[in-house]
């Protein structure tokens, strides 16, 4: 670039100068970790920011804010999604489960326990997303082999490199679940009850 020339870099040329005051927020309803909540949200608030900033549910992490790391993974209506790429207002009426809703009455979920036993994390920052993603994976039922689990968990980056331990933890939780299902199956024929007993 020529010295002395002035260069203007405009990040945002379309400032809505007419909207100098914040438009009113909208009331939505979300059921978060089993608790129904009525919330005032602005349209541009992502589900991730709502959880972390407005509701102090900071267990869900922001690693990239662009759907490129998986740290923000939560379950919405039972499915794993990136909460950073979701506007809260779009999920009006949905059920959201975060890492804070996984342990029941202080008892860790078998997957949480398995993560501890297998040392499936180091710094811990990607961990809630890894665990929520793995819950989603187990519910989907598509991945069973080691390679399939690795592939299906590839949307969750762990910079500490705990991947082999994450795989081992998921395999242990899957085995545990098969055992629970088998035992429950011998006692009862109600698969929905089993589902609930294993997956809060």
């Amino acid at each position: 670039m020529a010295a002395g020339a002035i260069m203007r870099v405009e990040q945002n040329t379309q400032a809505n100068t007419q909207t100098v005051s914040l438009p009113s927020s909208t009331k939505i309803t979300l059921t978060i970790n089993g608790v129904r909540r009525e919330l005032q949200v602005e349209p541009w608030t992502t589900l991730l920011d709502l959880l972390r900033l407005n509701l102090d549910l900071t267990g869900t992490k922001k690693g990239c804010d662009h759907g490129q790391c998986g740290a923000c993974t939560v379950l919405v209506d039972g499915k794993r999604i990136n909460s950073c790429m979701t506007l809260a207002i779009m999920k009006d009426g949905s059920e959201v489960m975060t890492i804070e809703g996984l342990a029941q009455n202080g008892a860790l979920h078998p997957l949480q326990q398995a993560f501890i036993e297998h040392d499936a994390f180091q710094c811990g920052y990607c961990t809630p997303g890894q665990i929520c993603s793995a819950i989603g994976l187990m519910r989907e039922g598509h991945a069973t082999t080691a390679d399939e689990i690795r592939e299906s968990m590839s949307g969750n980056i762990c910079r500490c490199g705990a991947y082999p331990n994450i795989l081992a933890a998921i395999q242990q939780a899957m085995a545990h679940r098969r055992n629970v299902d088998r035992v429950a199956g011998e006692r009862s024929v109600n698969p929905i009850a089993n589902e609930r007993s294993v997956n809060p």
């Binding site: 759907g67 999604i81 790429m85 949307g155 969750n156």
Partner: peptide, 9 residues
Amino acid sequence: GASAQLRNM
């Protein structure tokens, strides 16, 4: 393509 989470969305 993408990840399981993104494909769910």
